[in-house]
Write a protein that binds this DNA or RNA. Sequence first.
DNA 1: CCCCCGGATGTAATCGATTGCCATAAATTT
DNA 2: AAATTTATGGCAATCGATTACATCCGGGGG
Lengths: 331, 331
Amino acid sequence: MHQVTIALVAERAGVSTATVSRALSGSRPVSAESRRRVDRAAQELGYSGNSIASALRRSRTDTVGMVVPSIANPFFTSLVESVEHALHQEGMQLLLCDSRQDPAIEGAHLKALAARQVDGIIISPCHGTRSRAAIEATMAATPLVQLDRHVAGTDTDWVGVDDHQAMRLVMEHLAERGVRSAAFISSTLTNSSTELRLSGFRTQADRLGVATRDAWILLGEYSMQWGRSAANDLLASGPRPDAIVCADDLIALGALRSCRENGVRVPDDIKVTGFDDIDFSSLFEPALTTIDQPRERIAAEAVRLLANAAETGGTAAHIALAPALRIRDST
Amino acid sequence: MHQVTIALVAERAGVSTATVSRALSGSRPVSAESRRRVDRAAQELGYSGNSIASALRRSRTDTVGMVVPSIANPFFTSLVESVEHALHQEGMQLLLCDSRQDPAIEGAHLKALAARQVDGIIISPCHGTRSRAAIEATMAATPLVQLDRHVAGTDTDWVGVDDHQAMRLVMEHLAERGVRSAAFISSTLTNSSTELRLSGFRTQADRLGVATRDAWILLGEYSMQWGRSAANDLLASGPRPDAIVCADDLIALGALRSCRENGVRVPDDIKVTGFDDIDFSSLFEPALTTIDQPRERIAAEAVRLLANAAETGGTAAHIALAPALRIRDST
DNA sequence: CCCCCGGATGTAATCGATTGCCATAAATTT
DNA sequence: AAATTTATGGCAATCGATTACATCCGGGGG
């Protein structure tokens, strides 16, 4: 069966292709009579349009590309979901790419997205410095906004959460609960949010008189496995802190598991906090105290920034949304 | 800055656009000299191609669309991830759509994907009957494969797991563990896999002499919340079964939680099984006994089917892969 | 010495929708 | 009644890459 083209519709409706195009898109007024005939012809032929041809002509694809370090990480999953919803509302679609924490794959994805003429790119860079070259090459040709994290030295829009503020909420809450010493489990990654959370932790610990020590700063990766093994090490050796502050929920859930395995009671013996408020966190036992990132809003802002990118060629926007503390049973 | 076109490259290399196209795509031989000049010119100009134009001409987009009922459901998340990987290997990209369990949204997505001339569509239909019309309309124009579930009466390729076989593994395992009665918590959805799991449960219970009763068949939705509340009901009233068999891991995790809250010990007082083997299942306490679906292979097969769809116009393939039982602490 | 063949290249048509520009007709103004 | 505006509609160029077809060249065979 052959593709139903606008020309076919035009012929059947007894009008020109121009009129068909106008009738269907409403880009210019068309007589009621014409519209009716076009609609009917399109209906009868099952015309559904060819957005490729349309995209070529308009140089708009109504598509945005999104690149995340790992689709399977629940935090990114829910960002992807929110972005998809936001785009769907605007009649746009999502090209999803997984960089698998690899700057080379990430670069390839960015290049492919640019070649596809996407209207914009939303990216959570996988590396704090090695993602830079590809991002800079891409942003020259395509509107780009960084999500959650951003690469040092790049001048693009960014939307995320205020990490320092978040750590302040966490630490003040712990201090109120009587915590006098705390460990911090995070990732070795060098991206902005990872670094800001660590520096926020240090700053607030100092400010609130919460003791830390170098051996209590454990850097690995964002995963339950790492959280579990890091907490195992922590609990096995030396004095035990009053609290374990984790840079994301996966790590925290791993830490909770380790505590249980080691017979350390949470929150009585030790308090544990996470970051992200993924779905599982509230359903774990004990339910995890964590920072809720306003994901819907982050996604919506990102989409909005891309939509406006064409107009405001001006300076890059940095939007740090306010985090919220979700107090649960782990503290 | 203007788009760098093939014409620009041609001019700079001192050859025709035809030669540039041939040199870059290798579609036809080109002299070593020409190739060198073209490569250099492309390099210098930072030419990156316009896949929209290419797609229009070739009527291939190197894109497949994927429609899932819920991106956030960990099982679908991991299918999405696997599909993305498989596609990336083939140099293709993924347009991801979330139908949010709504046949209307699903239909709109399918229509949009068809209009975008995707090379193929991978869908997990959100409804057993109401997804049918849209799927049938779409499959006429675009290769389509259903994943995991399929809609009754549609004649498309399908890849999933052998649900009956899976239930047999679960029930035989439980019977071996001495289970004499079992409840089943599932979803009200009417899609194939939901129904096959239920009928498989019944068949195997009969065969193995495991007692069931109507009040022990609880249908709600695929979520932890439902699993928890269903198990609460179950544990609150009447005699308690030896085991709770769940139609997916989310339900099972909710059930596990309910057991703990109700002071029912797992696996001593009651055994619990899931289905899917999502990442969290092995990290929960107790770790969940469940069915591992070979997601990578499901994804790979789906992509392969789409790739071959053009050639084999023949009959639809139904590929039911073998499930594997993962025995853990919950039994 | 002429013809044929195959490799390399160029020219221009093509994919399908959009839109600038002009034409026509009807409505309104002067 | 003439002039001007307004409302519609059509023609054909256009987006950028691919490719059918034509061309050109040099070498081998007759």
